[in-house]
């Protein structure tokens, strides 16, 4: 997702202003000049100033040079989204994490993890012959490592494991 410097800069101006305002409204410590309000105020103002400079395009030259340097030294794939749909694919991993947050308690760890691994593998172009065994084995191994050896209380849900 590429945002123009003008937009991201203006967003930072807004964020900084809100933070500075919100910070300044915090209750001070009685009898003390300096309280919890000072730091957000300073940071917020700084952020707003930086945002303004970014929106005006100050310092953009440094960035271009670094990019050109990197491009000259390796084949690290130029991140060109091939289509709009392809760009949205990037949202899959955080989406799956959200799914984990809301489903793991109810479904249990292993079924949730099965769905996550299967979805990721398929989205990255794995065939069913790779994706299915992977989704069946990996969650069980991870559950064994974390729940049994490291004693993390992972939810059992519908599918209790033998350990």
């Amino acid at each position: 997702m590429r945002i123009s410097d003008r937009h991201s800069g203006l967003f930072l101006v807004a964020l900084g202003t809100v933070a500075a305002y919100g910070g300044s409204r915090l209750p001070p410590v009685p009898g003390q000049q300096i309280g919890p309000n000072v730091f957000p105020l300073v940071v917020g103002i700084g952020l707003a100033v930086c945002g303004l400079m970014i929106a005006l395009g100050i310092g953009h030259k440094f960035e271009e040079e670094a990019e050109a340097d990197l491009a000259a030294h390796s084949d690290a794939a130029p991140a060109a989204a091939r289509s709009r749909w392809n760009g949205l694919l990037a949202l899959l991993p955080p989406g799956l994490l959200l799914f984990y947050v809301y489903a793991s308690e109810w479904l249990g760890f292993v079924p949730t993890a099965f769905a996550i691994v299967l979805a990721m593998a398929r989205a990255l172009g794995a065939g069913w012959r790779l994706a299915l065994p992977l989704a069946l084995v990996v969650p069980v191994v991870v559950h064994f490592l974390f729940a049994k050896l490291l004693r993390v209380p992972l939810p059992f849900g519908f599918l209790p494991m033998p350990w």
Binding site: P93, V101, V117, A121, L124, A126, V138, V142, V152
Partner: peptide, 25 residues
Amino acid sequence: APRSSVMPVIVLLCCVGAFATGNNL
């Protein structure tokens, strides 16, 4: 090892790892 078999594991480890640091969703 194809990326399609490595990345799913990383995503799963992100979930479990973060959860394990505080047992908190």
